[in-house]
Design a protein around this nucleic acid. Structure first.
Lengths: 170, 170
DNA sequence: CTCCGATATATCGAATCGATATAAGTATAT
DNA sequence: ATATACTTATATCGATTCGATATATCGGAG
């Protein structure tokens, strides 16, 4: 997953490790550690997906190779897990997906969120009607899950609507 | 962090591994894997914080020891990181914190979320006014972050209000 | 009676994290 | 000018966590 993120970021422009950490952090949902990042760069270099060109000072600027570009394309096409992180990462690179496939990615996510919402509502209702007294704080947690999933779906629907009009306009 | 969760769940009632996984998953924000759980149980048993009593069939029911109960209290008092998961876990066990300390935990979280919100808004505004054309999908990600943080603060404020009236009523 | 999904424990390798080490550059204060 | 402190930058360590897999039992459906 980190490999995917690195390839995607390097695809835009060459960057050194520290800069990659910043760029990835700026995406807003993953504060990656150096303990993950540097080994990942070695890994990718050894596999021939990226290569290092010496940058200014002690910086090591990396750029994707042609093989790396292909690998990124493959990873982009694979269907990932249904974690928030995975989706957000894919969304950050959705611009690299062929326009006609984008809507599908968003709709798959919507389905996953709908499932999550049903589960969350079921837990919430189940806990309220339970004989076991459900702790106030855990009830709050369940309510939060319901609400934030609903909000996420609403946000996603806006994105889907935007995607539809963009596709129609093209 | 998993150790903390296990001690907290076992404090309520003895449970075996599989049941712990389910109980933790039911909390809604952490689908822990067996690869994390079973080693954690060994770890805690070796440290003397939990002990296994044979349950029905091949089940191994664990319960907290007195030392484990003390350890849990210590962990509960420590200030954790500012990750969502850490907070949600602490909230799930907030009932074990002395009532007069609970408000502080919630208010600390509020401060952390406010900081996050400022950062998120700054990124969002910065990207909008940037000369570099910010990708539509990344803009959406930034907006999502702003909105979900706002929603989280609103939710937390309700919880804080409830806490205040509960404390006043007692 | 067999097949299948849920229950239950366990382990392996790999990915990721958090902490730490090191050192050079850069700004600030004394 | 010089000490102090923060940011930049690469790197590694041990521990935690994950995802996949192995194995075996149990209960119910066909």
């Amino acid at each position: 997953m980190l490999d995917f993120a690195i390839l995607g970021l390097l695809r835009e422009q060459p960057r050194h490790g520290y800069e990659l950490k910043r760029a990835l952090g700026d995406l807003g949902f993953w504060q990656v550690s150096f303990g993950s990042l540097y080994p990942a760069l070695r890994r990718l270099e050894k596999q021939g997906f990226i290569e290092a060109a010496k940058g200014e000072g002690r910086r090591k600027a990396y750029r994707v190779t042609e093989t790396g570009r292909i690998r990124f394309g493959e990873m982009l096409a694979e269907s990932g897990d249904d974690s928030d992180r995975d989706f957000q990462l894919r969304l950050a690179f959705l611009g690299y997906v062929e326009p006609e496939s984008r809507l599908g990615v968003l709709e798959d996510r919507r389905t996953a969120l709908q499932d999550r919402l049903h589960g969350a509502r079921r837990s919430f209702r189940g806990a309220r009607s339970s004989t076991r007294n459900p702790d106030r704080y855990r009830m709050a947690l369940m309510e939060r899950r319901v609400r934030s999933t609903e909000a996420d779906i609403a946000w996603l629907d806006e994105l889907i609507a935007g995607e539809r009009s963009a596709t129609a306009g093209a």
